[in-house]
Design a protein around this nucleic acid. Structure first.
Lengths: 283, 283
DNA sequence: ATCACTTACGGGTGACGTAAAAATC
DNA sequence: GATTTTTACGTCACCCGTAAGTGAT
């Protein structure tokens, strides 16, 4: 059988036209490539090169061989990429969520159950979640609705409540609760990837300006430094206690400020995640 | 890049289940295959094997890799086969003919013009000739009709005349000429591959028995040893003089006993064969 | 002289075999 | 004990680089 390096040398020669150029491209001395061509010819038992005294070029058989070399080498590269990706996918749990809070809450638990795995997560829209779960882009998703498909296992996960987060000097600081309508039209600083919360905010406060920050830490920083109101939830208050310094959290009383989240996986993965899912049921 | 021998070792392991069996199949010692698997894993950076103390098997990544190995190795084998066939085709002139006489006449001329090429020939039906010329199965064909297609170049080649060949004691031995009708119903010994002549004989002498001999030399031998009549032509008389010993050749007077043959090649090959074709025009 | 290729020679990597150890059946 | 795998070690093949030679531009 023909060794791969011979195909590489052949392809380089085909691409660059001379043995010297091919050798340079391959980071080899010219004689190596010359010998490789000879070896290839001898193994095939077919002349591939037209040798003038001072010049070599591929004959028709050589060109055919080069075509094959190209295809085979591409196939090998595809093999390497695919296997590495497959392996990576096998050591990675991809989690998709429609909101950051439930994800942050899940993260420490999932890492403790799957300590050797890489956990990778995304905040995306509901449709992407479902498609992704179906196509194995995600192994776990956190959805805003219960999934009814036979293909998936789905259970109630948690309920998140939205709060207004303001400093002590804000007019609303003393309120026991507040409504979206009361805050509409004001400027807010908020985390960029809040998933469905953004939809809710934009619907309930159509005149509010939302200054989105890609960096989660920056949200707290900027909120503290400015007097801009921001948002928190029962979950972020628990997981990011640093952000509540000098700030008060006033619950929104609107119904839309309370969201239920569901966690789901493929039926075929239910066993694998059962310990984790049971723990979440209790909490 | 991954060398071919690693893929071969992987595939053998996949096929035979154990490293020892794979090694035996590959005519190698077990440690070689063991090392190859390790090397493969290290080059891919991916674990491919589940190692128990006394047992190894492919994991999912390994199975995927084995699939790729199979496909790549098949591709390489296809490459080898295809290139060798292509090369062979390039050093071979395939000649198709509808009759053996014109072919025998052509053979010495074509070999002298293309001394370095292998000449390969076939006696087949007219439709096969045309298809074969079109599909490059044949580079030259000898046809019973002039080809009118734009795709081909065609010229008159020669005229062949059929003779009855009998020993001196045969009743017809003294005839100046004879007809098919007069000989119908008798038994003949003849060469198996006479192309269109067989069609003609069967049509004109529907009651004759034709004992076909695959070996050309055997026809003469058997004809001499027996008293069976056989056939000859102006061409075979010229090229196979040994066969006319103790035999007389009586021309058939029927019109169908005289056949015109045409030689043709692809227009794209006309230049290549021009010297040969010109020589044939003169003869 | 420069360029392109081939041949010749020497060196080092690595593929392989043998031997031995460990573990399982 | 037989089988299977891995590790250790020595050997040899072979791939590569350097150097020299040939021929063409």
């Amino acid at each position: 059988m023909i060794e791969t390096y011979l195909l590489e040398h052949l392809l380089a020669f085909h691409k660059f036209g001379t043995l010297s150029a091919a050798a340079e491209q391959l980071h080899l001395a010219q004689p190596s490539v010359s010998r490789s061509m000879q070896k290839l010819e001898s193994e095939l038992g077919v002349t591939l090169l037209i040798r003038s005294k001072n010049r070599v070029e591929l004959n028709e058989s050589g060109k055919l061989a080069a075509e094959y070399a190209k295809r085979i080498l591409e196939k090998e590269e595809e093999m390497i990429r695919h296997i590495r990706a497959f392996d990576r996918a096998n050591r990675t749990i991809m989690v998709g969520s429609c909101a950051p809070g439930p994800l942050m809450f899940l993260f420490p638990k999932i890492t403790s159950f799957f300590s050797e795995m890489t956990i990778s997560s995304d905040i995306v829209e509901e449709e992407v979640l479902l498609q992704g779960l179906k196509r194995d882009d995600y192994q776990l998703i956190i959805a805003p609705k219960h999934l009814e498909s036979e293909e998936f296992y789905c259970q109630k996960y948690l309920r998140e409540h939205l709060y207004l987060s303001v400093n002590n000097f804000h007019p609303a600081a003393t309120y026991k609760s507040i409504t979206f309508a009361e805050m509409d039209g004001q400027n807010f600083i908020m985390y960029a990837k809040v998933g469905i919360w953004e939809d809710i905010l934009r619907e309930k406060m159509p005149h509010a300006k939302l200054y989105k920050q890609a960096d989660l830490d920056a949200v707290g920083e900027i909120a503290s430094a400015s007097d801009l109101p921001s948002f928190s939830t029962n979950i972020t208050q628990q997981l990011l206690p640093s952000r509540v310094m000098n700030r008060v959290n006033i619950p929104f009383s609107d119904e839309e400020a309370h969201a239920d989240f569901y966690i789901a996986c493929k039926q075929s993965d239910k066993k694998r995640f059962s310990a984790l899912l049971n723990l979440l049921k209790q909490a």
